[in-house]
Amino acid sequence: MRWIWIDRFEEFEPGKRARAVRNLSHAEDHFADHFPGWPVMPASLMIEGLAQTGGILVGEANDFREKVVLAKVVRATFHREMMPGETLHYDVELQHMAPEGASVAGRVFVDGELVGEAEIFFAHLDQSRSKQMFGDHNFVFSGQLKHMLDMARKVIKPAEATPASA
């Protein structure tokens, strides 16, 4: 399964903020069960989308050397239900960055309307310990997730803030 819950980046300011878009399609399997006859985007998957947007923002700030893992959702509020056919924009700002981890403030917009907010905390998995467990390979930014950023570099016009290294 492809565990990617953002479609592409629209904006990316390294070390500051990022904005990703997510189109909700009725063809997604989870809409069949959540809920039968009333397809609603699960809030947990929107938190995942914010965390992927924020996780790449945090990872990029350290050149993807750290294993960035979601450690804590401090709070999350959703103001209404989101349905297939809607386009979500995940807007994430880096709040705090330290060697041990980082925190971001995330907001979800549909057509400029604020529909959700979450504060997410990431930990940098302890290098020595994660090396014992997982080896040198950075499993967080192995392929799919990092590829999102490469795609962003191709899609976003240079004038609209692309990663500095692009």
Binding site: K72, A98, E100, G101, S103, F121, A123
Partner: peptide, 8 residues
């Protein structure tokens, strides 16, 4: 993990 959050 909360201790780090608190420090921030």
């Amino acid at each position: 993990i909360d201790f780090l959050d608190i420090v921030f």
